[in-house]
Amino acid sequence: MKKLTAIFMSAVMCFLFAGCSNETAQSSDGQASSDSVSSAVVEVPKPDGFKVDGTKLIDGYGEEFVMRGVNHAYTWFKSDTDTALEGIEYIGSNTVRLVLSDGDQWDKVSRAELKSLIRKCKKKNLIAVLEIHDGAGKDEVSYLEHAVDYWIEMKDLLNENKAYAIVNIANEWYGTYNDLETWRDAYINAVKKLRDAGIENTLIVDSAGWGQCADSVLKYGNEILKADKDANTMFAVHMYGTAGKNEETVKNTIDTAIKNNLCLLIGEFGWKHSDGNVAYDTIMQYSTEKNIGYLAWSWKGNGDDVSYLDVSRDWAGVDLTTEWGKPLVEGEYGIKKTSKTCSVYTKYASDDTSSDDEAAE
């Protein structure tokens, strides 16, 4: 009898434990319990490339992205770039605009160099805006064409990184304020050629007049945009003593670009320049209010006659300049308070773990 009782109790206990185990695995409606769901790993897909949507730049996860950062002259300060990128990240930037060269005036940046630069930016959660500087202030169309050829040569690398890198076709190409139709037509051809070659990145077109002729963009920007079969082109005005000379001028440029449904970037600006003082406080405040990106010129290394444009006295960004670096970084509408890391970094961990020391391929 005792033996039969023991067997019966053992069977009951097994039944009870089996029931508890089953309840733990499933809820009454057959769905997995909250504990099971919370332990599941949700895979986030890789981000798509940047896209222009009217006045907005949309990142690879569909979120609006507003650039905040500085320019760094890689072409002239290659050995200081690692430290500079650390400093640019340190001050809170979400973007860095990098001076490159296609060989017209300075040594051509190789594919291996460009690959390493993009990788370094990714590791520091920085979006890379890549620009060819050789044609700055030039009116000859050949300089723009050479820049286009350079980007086409780098097509595969650019497309692989379209979620992290934006192509600023040519820095300040077309130095004059006259015959803006030449500027327009050249960029229409440039955009078409880049797209026909298969480049998928967002493109940036700089204004004429050394980047300060905002009228070129405001008048002809939509014609250039229509030439882009991907409709993925934005426009940059560089604001110094002409385009950024006062509050009225700054606000008019931004308001008109928005009215014309153009995606605008203040690609460069300073607190003063050889052509006059700059309403930099208005640029920062109004850009923040209107969700316009701004990238200051420049981190460090400006010549003695324009050294006042240095954001930092050291490459690491520890010693910011008083009149430019500190208000830019620490001001109410400065980088630290208005910069937000792109969601392609906060939502997805890149699997690019290859070495930065690759010198050739």
Rank of each mutant, 00 (worst) to 15 (best):
K300S: 02
D255G: 09
Y174Q: 00
W76N: 13
E361T: 02
T202M: 13
D196G: 00
K162M: 05
G293P: 02
G270L: 09
G334D: 07
S207K: 02
T81V: 11
N246F: 02
I169R: 01
I169Y: 02
M284C: 04
A165L: 06
E289F: 02
D104N: 13
D107A: 10
E181D: 12
A186W: 12
R68Q: 07
A165R: 03
L262N: 04
T24W: 10
L309D: 07
E361G: 00
Y348G: 08
V37D: 12
V306M: 09
Y150Q: 02
A257V: 01
Q285S: 14
N159Y: 03
E89I: 00
A25R: 15
P45S: 09
A360S: 03
L328R: 07
M1D: 09
A236K: 00
I7P: 01
K56H: 12
T346I: 12
S355Q: 04
C121L: 04
L264F: 12
S27Q: 15
T338G: 10
I335W: 08
K138E: 15
G209T: 08
D134R: 04
K46T: 02
G87I: 05
Q31H: 12
T83F: 03
D196M: 04
T242I: 15
D255Q: 05
A170I: 07
R68D: 05
D156S: 05
A25Y: 15
S28A: 10
A84P: 07
L114C: 09
N71W: 13
V141T: 09
V167T: 10
S287P: 01
W324D: 00
S36N: 08
S21T: 04
S343R: 14
D304Q: 11
L4R: 11
L144K: 07
F235Q: 14
K56R: 08
E43Y: 14
G334Q: 06
V52C: 12
K340L: 07
A208V: 08
N260D: 04
K51Q: 05
A316M: 08
K122R: 14
S39N: 14
R313I: 00
L225W: 01
Y90M: 13
F17T: 07
D352L: 12
D80M: 09
L130R: 05
G301C: 03
S27A: 09
Y164I: 02
S110F: 06
N302A: 04
K138N: 14
D314K: 08
A257Q: 01
E89Q: 04
V278E: 00
Q26K: 15
W210Y: 14
F77L: 12
G334W: 04
D230W: 11
L126H: 06
T176H: 05
K120C: 00
